[in-house]
Design a binder for these strands. Structure first.
Lengths: 140, 140
DNA sequence: CCCCTATAATTAGCCGGCTAAATGAATGGG
DNA sequence: CCCATTCATTTAGCCGGCTAATTATAGGGG
């Protein structure tokens, strides 16, 4: 199994995570937190449950990440007026300000990773990854 | 960045990890531990530092994982006779017994993930992943 | 021979991620 | 109207992973 595609995939993902983490740490972020911010940059004041769906993360993970983002001053939480069970999440000024630098990080690593791939290769790669994802999601 | 290749890659890897974790938990293993065992199945009695190199993991991570594997009764540690700084890691009987079931898990998920890919697509995918890995490793 | 550096491993402490179980609020049926 | 269910979130506790700092041994040079 040494050089299986699974193993390569894991290695590439780990390397990607490593590079991203290095870049994000210079913005005071930890890798993973950017997914939450991506969603908030698209739509602010969203319910926590929507973030859970969007980031494909479990509820307790989201709770911890949000409380860290809150402590870091990037977001704020408020109770929903209609439904007291839900918490809504708003970006702070500092959270909004990170949008461009984080996008640049992300894009820079994407470009670096796919450096010498042709357009056809990129398109095929995307198609294969989509297929693999649905294979894994669609169970046995 | 919603549908970037990076994002897809992360999602596929996460799904892969999820499936693998589910399968390995039935063998009493946590995802990640299998990498250590893969190396020990190939070569037993190896120094901890070699496992660190092979698994591409930091030393403290290895320390923790090994102590858990030891507590689970899958490995044993002994001091090296020549160099008192190094610890050598041996599989126990129970650790050796997991080889076949874990390989089957791994292979089953590989097959499921690559279900409907042609041989050519698999070869190209492997080549692209190798290229991406070296792109990410080889810095800026 | 002693000190200084390099190396192997560990400890402390953080983060993302998970499951299981608990809390608290909304809601639908009898 | 109340009770059971359902839903949103949190808490506790585990694991893999990391960095920074520590301990302990090995080895080389003056």
């Amino acid at each position: 199994m040494e050089e299986s595609i699974s193993h390569l995939l894991v290695q590439v993902c780990k390397a990607h995570r490593g590079c991203l983490g290095e870049a994000l740490s210079q913005l005071g972020l930890h890798v993973g937190q950017e997914m939450i911010l991506f969603h908030l940059w698209e739509q602010d004041g969203v319910a926590q449950s929507q973030l859970i769906g969007g980031c494909q993360v479990e509820a307790p993970t989201m709770t911890k990440m949000l409380s860290r983002l809150e402590k870091a001053g990037l977001i704020q939480r408020r109770r929903d007026a209609q439904d007291a069970r839900v918490w809504r999440v708003d970006l702070t000024q500092r959270g909004r300000a990170l949008k461009e630098p984080v996008y640049r990080c992300w894009q820079k690593i994407e470009e670096r990773m796919l450096r010498d791939l042709t357009l056809e290769e990129k398109l095929l790669l995307r198609r294969l990854l989509l297929q693999m994802r649905s294979n894994l999601f669609e169970g046995e």
